[in-house]
Computed example of a mutant assay.
Amino acid sequence: MTGICAGQVAVVTGAGRGLGRAHALALAAEGARVVVNDLGTDRAGEGSSTEPAREVVREIRDRGGEAVAHAGDVATGEGAASLVATALDAFGRLDVLVNNAGFLRDRMLVSLGEDDWDAVVRVHLKGHFLPMRCAAAHWRAESKAGRAVRASIVNTTSGAGLLGSVGQANYAAAKAGIVALTLVAAAELARYGVRANAVAPAARTRMTEGIFGDGLGEPGDVSPLVVWLGSQASADVTGRVFEAEGGRITVMEGWRRGPTADGGGRWTPTEAGGAARRLLTGARAPGPVYGAGAP
């Protein structure tokens, strides 16, 4: 197949449904050979099934593409290692890692149990870290062996991680962590020919069903940006965060130093408070937290 990803091998986690499925299909349509990962859990991360991943593989093959299924848990070291091994065994290379797996267990902060915190942070944050670590180890070995590496990591963050979201403390914290993880990966892996970016998507999926109503775009609206970030057309883009919804793409600009005061030594509490008050008058107000309503 031809396209901007022709010759590349891409891995997509959480690709059995929703955004991951759309990304896998779009990558294949642009010529990539795809490893479709999905544990086959429900919306809350319970149960398992190989069928969602296999169904997407069938769709890709029916359209003339190449794909294999992987049903391992990428939030475990064994699952992440086997994910990378599947790409190498099936197609002999790995060029693109799209981290997308995740689920929700929404609760208000005072009602959020440890199990629900641990489960969501595990699948989102650890489920990004472990595949990245395994893929990066492979790419580093390739680079040190003198073989040219032109690889891309595309991570999935969220507006919840960028601005916060009422009722989603676990999910928002994990998604904020993914942004920092992406920035570190971009800085550390550039020497090996690897770039890393993150996308904060908004689309109608089973995760957003009942939360945002019908006002969101389709998962496939986000996929063209993900495909471009995976392709060599974006070879000079790394360490960036994009928001994507429907036909809109936004470059997100994160924490930057704003107004600053230097007292030349240790402040008293009263002096520090006065300085902070003066600085706040010249600072931009933070964006509204999702679900907080009008102040």
Rank of each mutant, 00 (worst) to 15 (best):
T2M: 14
V9W: 01
G20T: 11
A22R: 04
L27H: 06
G31C: 13
R33Y: 07
N37I: 02
R43M: 12
G45M: 06
S48I: 02
S49M: 04
T50S: 15
R61H: 06
R63T: 12
E66Y: 08
E66I: 04
A75D: 13
G79I: 03
T86F: 06
F91D: 05
V98W: 03
A101V: 06
G102E: 03
L109C: 09
S111F: 12
L112D: 03
V123L: 04
C134D: 15
A135F: 05
H138K: 02
W139Y: 04
E142G: 02
E142V: 08
A151T: 05
T157F: 04
G159E: 12
S165G: 09
S165Q: 15
V166N: 01
Q168N: 01
A169L: 05
A173N: 04
A174S: 09
I178W: 07
T182R: 02
T182P: 01
A185V: 02
R191S: 08
Y192M: 00
G193W: 10
V194M: 05
R195N: 10
N197Y: 03
A198E: 04
A202S: 13
A202V: 00
I211F: 14
F212N: 12
G217L: 01
P219M: 08
D221K: 04
V222T: 07
V222I: 14
V222R: 06
L225T: 08
V227W: 07
D236Q: 11
R240T: 05
V241T: 14
F242C: 06
F242T: 02
E243F: 15
A244M: 14
R248F: 13
M252D: 13
T260P: 04
G264E: 13
G265L: 07
E271W: 08
E271R: 13
R278P: 11
A285Y: 11
G287M: 11
V289G: 07
A292N: 07
P295V: 05
